[in-house]
Structure formats: structure tokens, C-alpha cells
């Protein structure tokens, strides 16, 4: 199996603070890999630096065989690397359906000339996209809310929207930054199932930052543990449970019990 994403000796520093301090790991193509670790381990910074929101101090990131660490964010996304955010960031003043329509790349109506003088061609294209978007919304249970402004959605619905929007972008790989944060247990179940379906259905690779180890256990085949900006360990969750370093890193408390159980 080949890697879709390779993180190699990545360093990120903000001022004097080393948020990521020489981290190396890989994500296999077609898998869901979890990225876990205690708070302040640098997980979100890692997602940011893979997606391009945070620039590296040194190191390299290879996505789909291409070195991407010097590409601007939008170029990385054009290559098929799409992220979601820890806090939902929907386009509030646009309808749910529009939220999906806007993210598809390569629409002919994105050029000014086509937009203004060839509206027919662009309209035909949009109609097809509307059908596609509605299918996705239907899968995620948002179909009936498609003409609602995204800002009017509930917290859980916004989570679903965030994910369906990412799916609409047809990514090769999804970077999910705590998609289950602040979500009810029932919805966690649903979201988890969606992620598994996407992975099985289209072979979409995922890197999932998650605190909830039950979720990790259920949907992730591999787990990377980060602590103090470094990769601490890697393996299946079962393997990691017997790894003293990992248990130590969580330093007692609730998580200690959970991972040790």
C-alpha cells in the first residue's frame, strides 16, 4: 500500500513557542488514520500546516506524491486535499444548497466572460450540480433544509453541513479536525457511520483528529499519537493501549483511564 500523505520532520514555531517539533508520520491511501494526543500536543497545528493555513519552519509534507509544503492553501485543495474545521465554518448568509454548490471547482461560470455572457452554459452545469448536491444532502439528512440559510441550522446540522460540503468538493483526502466536537452521542454515531461509508464507498483517505477514543476505535484502522509537538507512537489502538509511553503522555486523569481501560 502506498502513502497518500507523508509528514517528514515537520517543525512549526510561533515566536519562541515550538508547536510542532520534528514530527514524522504517514497516512496510507484509502485508510482512516486517527491523530490523537493530549491538549497542546500540536494536532490542530498539524492539520493547519498540512492544509496550508500554518507555514512550516522546516520539514516537508508530501501529498499524493507531490511536495506541497510550499504551495498556497488553495493549490493544495485543488490537488484534492480538503479540510474541515474544529468549529463549524459554514457560509451563514447562503443557503445550505449554495454552500455545497460553491465549493465545486472548475465551473465554467467562474470566469467573468462566461458568468455574464454565457449564462446558459453555466446554468446547465449548475443544474447538474444541484442534482449532485441534493443527493449528498439527502445522504446526510439535510435535504429538507437545503433552502434554509446555513446560519439558521443547529449546531449538529452545521456539523453535517460541514461534512457534506467537504464531500461535494470530491476530495482525495479529508482532514477532519475534531468533527465530533460538541455533538450529541446519537449524532456522533451517525457522523461516524458517514465517515466509514465514504471511506468504503469511494476509498477516500482521511486523517481524523479526535478525542473520543470510542470513535477512533470504531472507524480508524491506524492511530498516530502526538505529544509535545512530536510523534510519540503509531499503531492500532489495541497496540497503543499496551504502550507505556502513550499512557504516560496522557499523565493520569480521565484520558489515562480511558486509554488504559
Amino acid at each position: 500500500m502506498s502513502n497518500i500523505l507523508a509528514i517528514s520532520d515537520v517543525h512549526v514555531a510561533f515566536g519562541g513557542l515550538k508547536a510542532i517539533d520534528g514530527c514524522t508520520f504517514e497516512v496510507e491511501k484509502g485508510t482512516i488514520t486517527a491523530l490523537i494526543g493530549p491538549n497542546g500536543a500540536g494536532k490542530s497545528t498539524m492539520v493547519g500546516s498540512i492544509a496550508g493555513a500554518v507555514s512550516l519552519t522546516s520539514g516537508s509534507i508530501t501529498f499524493d506524491g507531490q511536495e506541497i509544503s510550499h504551495l498556497p492553501t488553495y493549490r493544495r485543495a485543488q490537488g484534492g486535499l480538503i479540510r474541515t474545521y474544529q468549529i463549524s465554518r459554514e457560509f451563514g448568509g447562503m443557503t445550505v444548497l449554495e454552500n455545497l454548490l460553491v465549493v465545486r471547482l472548475g465551473q465554467s461560470g467562474e470566469s467573468l466572460i462566461n458568468a455574464v455572457f454565457r449564462p446558459k452554459k453555466s446554468k446547465t452545469e449548475t443544474n447538474a450540480l444541484v442534482g449532485e448536491a441534493n443527493e449528498i444532502l439527502n445522504t446526510f439528512g439535510l435535504y429538507r433544509l437545503r433552502n434554509e440559510y446555513a446560519s439558521n441550522l443547529s449546531g449538529g446540522q452545521k456539523r453535517l453541513l460541514e461534512l457534506s460540503r467537504a464531500v461535494m468538493a470530491k476530495p482525495k483526502m479529508l482532514l477532519l479536525d475534531e468533527p465530533m466536537a460538541g455533538v450529541t452521542p446519537a449524532l456522533i454515531e451517525i457522523l461516524g457511520q458517514h465517515l466509514l461509508d465514504l471511506n468504503k464507498g469511494s476509498g477516500m483517505s482521511m486523517l481524523l483528529v479526535e478525542h473520543n477514543l470510542e470513535v477512533v476505535d470504531k472507524i480508524c484502522s491506524r492511530v498516530v499519537v502526538m505529544a509535545t509537538g512530536k510523534r510519540l507512537a503509531e499503531g492500532t489502538l489495541a497496540e497503543l493501549r499496551s504502550n507505556r509511553d502513550v499512557v504516560e503522555a496522557y499523565l493520569g486523569g480521565e484520558v489515562h483511564e480511558r486509554i488504559g481501560s
Binding site: A51, E90, G93, L101
Partner: peptide, 18 residues
């Protein structure tokens, strides 16, 4: 539509490849 999405949240539009 892209313009309006940028009005709502430029970073996200950027992260979707525009």
C-alpha cells in the same frame, strides 16, 4: 457565488481551492 462565499468566510473558500 464565490464572491459571496468569500464575504462569508474567505479562509474557507481558500481551503476549498479557489
Amino acid at each position: 457565488r464565490s464572491m459571496r462565499a468569500i464575504r462569508e468566510d474567505q479562509d474557507v473558500v481558500d481551503a476549498f481551492g479557489k
